[in-house]
């Protein structure tokens, strides 16, 4: 559905996207994960023909974004990061204009609108002005609008940013339903790590470069093993003892006087460690790595959720 090769964008001195390559398959949910300013929106705009690439090539549904922009635009649906509804018009009017712009026959459009509005649970608000909608309702309306003309690829730029957990889960529900029902490929960006778990594959982008690309599980086992945390009275002794016994094992002191062991096979190491140092260990926890760990490892920093959500709030307010 998407074939991207060496795609690059410079804004003057700013090298926003530095030659990225990836593929998105049919009916795949592909996540683009990165911190603020990583180049997610820029990439999406290039794929949607709104920004001309400086270099590289991108095929969307088989059409070249540089030479066949009309065909590309016909094949995609997009939900922008910032609201793009006419909030002085009603939801129905917004949807009707969209159908007309994309040449959807009006009887087909009426049936589609009904179906999609039921899916996003807005069927009762159809005749109300968008001005009266909350941020989450607008987002859901935009998703419905983006699907009205049955695109082959749906672009979602941070579709859940700034929304509450319940709404976010609902939107994820729709996205999965869509893929099942319509076979649409979804290319979405997010900076919520927990959400990226919903994707079939994830590309982690930082400073305009893809630093990793794999399934969520693949990323986790590739970049962070299981983590065994050992509670102890005497971390130094325990640390030294483990190092002596198993020099190849990755051991480090934890932040609160624990000892942390990182390994690919956590489940089999727990009994061995306990058996060997039963008098030193008071408690053991085994945790699977989170994408957080992967992200920190790859980019050297955590995604600052508080900062990000402050930006989101500002963005959502602009729609009011």
């Amino acid at each position: 559905m998407l074939q991207v090769e060496g795609l690059e964008k410079r804004y003057g001195a700013v090298h926003a996207v530095k030659g990225i390559s990836f593929e998105v398959r049919e009916a795949e949910i592909f996540g683009f994960l990165g911190p603020n300013g990583a180049g997610k929106t820029t990439t999406m705009k290039m794929l949607a023909t709104l920004v001309r690439p400086t270099a590289g090539k991108a095929l969307v549904a088989g059409y070249d974004v540089s030479t066949q922009p009309d065909e590309v635009r016909r094949s995609i649906g997009i939900v922008f990061q910032d609201p793009s509804l006419d909030d002085r018009l009603t939801a129905a009017q917004n949807l009707r204009f969209h159908a007309m712009l994309y040449g959807v026959p009006s009887d087909v459009a009426v049936a589609r609108v009904k179906e999609l509005m039921e899916m996003v649970e807005l069927q009762d608000r159809l005749q109300e002005r968008v001005k009266t909608f909350s941020g989450g309702m607008r987002r859901r309306l935009e998703i419905a609008r983006g699907l009205l003309h049955r695109p082959k690829v749906l672009f979602l730029d941070e579709p859940t940013a700034g929304l509450d957990t319940q709404t976010r889960m609902k939107i994820w529900g729709y996205i999965h339903e869509l893929r099942e029902r319509e076979g649409v490929a979804v290319f979405m960006s997010t900076h919520y790590l927990d959400e990226a778990e919903n994707c079939d594959r994830i590309a982690i982008i930082d400073h305009g470069e893809i630093v990793a690309l794999d399934t969520p599980d693949g990323l986790k086992s590739q970049f962070g093993g299981d983590v065994i945390t050992l509670m102890t009275d005497d971390p130094e002794t325990l640390l030294a003892a483990i190092r002596e016994r198993w020099p190849q094992l990755k051991v480090r002191p934890g932040s609160q006087g624990q000892v942390v062991v990182e390994t690919a096979e956590g489940a089999s190491w727990v009994p061995r460690l306990v058996e060997a140092f039963v008098h030193h260990i008071q408690a053991v926890t085994l945790s699977r790595p989170s994408l957080d760990d992967v992200f920190i490892k790859l980019t050297g920093r955590a995604i600052r959720e508080e900062e990000a959500s402050a930006v989101d709030r500002m963005r959502l307010q602009r729609g009011h």
Binding site: A48, T49, L50, D70, R73, R74, I76, I78, F80, D82, P83, S84, L85, D86, D87, H98, L101, Y102, G103, R318, G319
Partner: peptide, 17 residues
């Protein structure tokens, strides 16, 4: 205003000349 409030993008990304 359309640009300011984002609606312009909806028009610009539509398959029309």
């Amino acid at each position: 205003w359309d640009r300011e409030f984002g609606f312009l993008k909806e028009i610009l990304v539509a398959p029309i000349s």
